[in-house]
Amino acid sequence: MYSVTLESPADFAGWREAARGLLGAGIPPEAVSWHSPAEPAGLFAGPPPPDVPAQSAIPPVPRDFLEMAERAARHSDPERFALLYGLLWDARRAPGLLRTPTEPRMARLEAMARAVKRDAHKMHAFLRFREIDTPEGPRSVAWFEPEHHIVEAEAGFFQRRFAALRWSILTPRRCAHWDGAEIRFAEGARRADAPADDAAEDLWRTYFASIFNPARLKPDAMRAEMPKKYWKNLPEARIIPALMQGASGRVRAMLGQEPASQPQPPGPRRRRKD
């Protein structure tokens, strides 16, 4: 059994290089275990795989697959690298495999890539900066809890958007710091390391409460898109229970003290396309 230890939990380039070597050396998936500093090999680590000639034959890999694989490699599933290598191994004999979205392992990989994409999207959406004064000037600091290994991949989004600010994104897995020149990554942090409040949050809650239409209460639809696990880090979420409790009274008042005549349908469990 060989052990491959990658540089970081989402080290896709490292995985590609190792996979190329393993394929060249003809080492089957069941003879390899994959690790990263966050998922150490432990006591029973095997030796690293042998070095192989660089020009070893690699099956051609569709670009779509590579994109999906890179995303799936950020998933927190400890089997992600083994799954990827297994597919690559079998693709040597079954050229259509990596283009068959209905194949069970391909479907699993796609689900992983989708979960990572959603996690990234939720990070772009639900991360909230709080501004603090530091001796070097104002700094924007956010605390976010991603489900997968996405901080390195998504830091660029915040750099492109907030290049003019100086910011820090703290998460339990990794932290990213921007001072105007380059992004620096560091070890994970604790929630207590982030500021606890921001003066603008009151105004933001005022907005959130006012833009909500009490005549259309659909809490399931809200929770489907903004699951409760995110609420503890969203400054506006703390007023949601009060908004919901007050809704029917506000509607009755609008209708001139009449009770609401139209029962509201419950929201969908999951939104999807027909």
Binding site: H121, A164, F212, N213, P214, L217, A221, M222, M244
Partner: peptide, 26 residues
């Protein structure tokens, strides 16, 4: 994007930063 100055970015995809209890995106 703001790498050459300014504040902000648009990358094609819309982002819903919050959802209100009416199920609508903010």
């Amino acid at each position: 994007d703001s790498r050459a100055g300014g504040l902000g970015s648009t990358e094609g995809m819309g982002i819903c930063h919050a959802y209100a209890p009416d199920g609508r995106c903010v």
